[in-house]
Design a protein around this nucleic acid. Structure first.
Lengths: 130, 130
DNA sequence: TACGGATATACCTATATAGGTATATATGGT
DNA sequence: ACCATATATACCTATATAGGTATATCCGTA
C-alpha cells in the first residue's frame, strides 16, 4: 500500500474520526451517523472512499453493513493506525466521539446488529439507531 | 497542533518527500530541487505550505534559506514523523531520494551552505547546487 | 549602485474533492 | 407484491489546491 494513499485517507476530518472509531471496534453506518452527527450521505461517501482504497472492509449483516479495519493490514497501515490511536487520546474531537460511541452502544445487547434493529417489537420507542 | 493539519501536510507526495528528507537533516531549497528533480517554484510553494503550518522552520544562511524540522515539535508531530521515517524505509521513492541526497551532499565540505556556494572561486565548474 | 543568484509570491488554470439533493438498490417484514 | 429501513450512488456546486509562468524580493559582490 502506498504511503501517500494512506495519508490521503487521513487528511479529512470525517474520515479521521471514522478510522479512529474503527480502531476501537467495527461499526455500522447508522452508528457513524449517530456518533459523528452527520448526514447519511456524507458518512456513506467517506466510507466508500476508504473502502475503495482498502483502509476498511465491510460485511453485510442483515440490512446493515458493518465496517471494520482489515484483519491483516499492511505494515504501513498498521503503524499509522497505531500512531493515530495514540495521537487521538489528546484531542477532544476524538475523545468526545468515543464517549458518544459508548453511549450509542449502551443500548446494544449482544451482537452489533442488535442496537440497530427496528425495535418496534422490542421497545417500540426509538428510531433505528441507538 | 491539530492532527488533521499534520495529515493535510502529509497527503501530498512532494511534501511527504520533503519531510522525509528533513527527518534526516536540514536542507536548503536548491538541495530539494536537485534531489526531487522539481522546479524551484514547486518546491518553494510546498515549503511555504509546511512553514505556514509549523511543520518546518527556516533560518537564513547568507543567500540561502535552510529548512529544518522544528527543534521541539509537539508530540503528535514527533510521533508522526517517527512513523513516517519508519514507513519510508520500504518505499522506493523515498530510498531513491535518500541516495540522491547523499550524492548531492557529497560535494559539501563542512557547513551546509558550502555546497551551494557560487563556487567560481573554489572550483569554477558547477552550478549553484551540487 | 548595478547585477546575478536564491527564494518567494501573484496570478492563472485544471483537477480533486467535499458536501448537498434526489434517487437507486438491497433487505426484512407484512 | 408492497413497504419501510439501511445504504449506495448519480449528479451538481463550491472550494481547495497543485502546478505552471512571470515577476518580485533579498542577499552578496563587483
Amino acid at each position: 500500500m502506498r504511503l501517500i494513499e494512506i495519508y490521503k485517507c487521513l487528511c479529512d476530518e470525517t474520515r479521521l474520526r471514522i478510522l479512529h472509531l474503527l480502531s476501537h471496534r467495527p461499526l455500522c453506518v447508522c452508528h457513524f451517523q449517530a456518533i459523528l452527527r452527520a448526514p447519511q450521505v456524507k458518512i456513506s461517501k467517506h466510507l466508500a472512499y476508504l473502502r475503495e482504497r482498502g483502509l476498511v472492509h465491510t460485511r453485510r449483516e442483515g440490512a446493515w453493513i458493518v465496517y471494520a479495519l482489515p484483519a491483516n493490514p499492511p505494515p504501513e497501515l498498521a503503524e499509522n493506525m497505531r500512531c493515530l490511536q495514540d495521537c487521538c487520546r489528546e484531542q477532544t474531537v476524538f475523545t468526545a466521539d468515543l464517549r458518544r460511541m459508548v453511549k450509542a452502544l449502551a443500548s446494544c445487547s449482544g451482537p452489533l446488529a442488535e442496537c440497530c434493529a427496528p425495535a418496534p417489537k422490542r421497545r417500540g420507542r426509538k428510531t433505528a439507531h441507538a
